[in-house]
Design a protein around this nucleic acid. Sequence first.
DNA 1: GCCAACGTTGGC
DNA 2: GCCAACGTTGGC
Length: 176
Amino acid sequence: MLYWLLKSEPDVFGYPDLVRVGVEPWNGVRNYLARNHLRQMAAGDLCLFYHSNAKPNGVAGVARVVRAAYPDNLQFDPASAYFDPKSSSDNPRWSMVDVSPVAAFPTLLTLDAVRGLPEWADSPLTRKGTRLSVFPVTAAQFEAALAAVGLEAIWKTEGPTDLETAETEAGGAQSF
DNA sequence: GCCAACGTTGGC
DNA sequence: GCCAACGTTGGC
């Protein structure tokens, strides 16, 4: 199982939107490195859902990859801002995965707070000038992020696949 | 294949 | 709104 971070602007699509829709195709990624990361994802992988261009910025929750990479639908839609005339259906240039909500963080883990975690000293998130929107995080980084918002006990005792159950027992998803 | 110009991301 | 950083484009 691998761990990832997904950036999204909450004004466009935030964690509460993911909770509302249940399953979301993560389309519109138009950066090759980010795309390659999408292609490395497997169903079951967990993602930190990060709010960028927000006030404040930070990790809002955990999502799960529920479908591995398949062709991004928007690349074939001329009406879409993500249309790519150079892409073809026999050789699609861009990929997307499907993600679902797992657990909202009880409080937003702000970018400042992430910077305070030693595990996150070296990451595209905390490195100046990095704009990558999809990248891997280490298990230690993932665990540290959960621990910082009080979900470490869940992590340690239940394991990642039981976060959903623990969330339900804790009283349902929070919103920001 | 180089690199200048341009557009975009994203923190502040 | 500013601007640093970076990816992409396109002329040569």
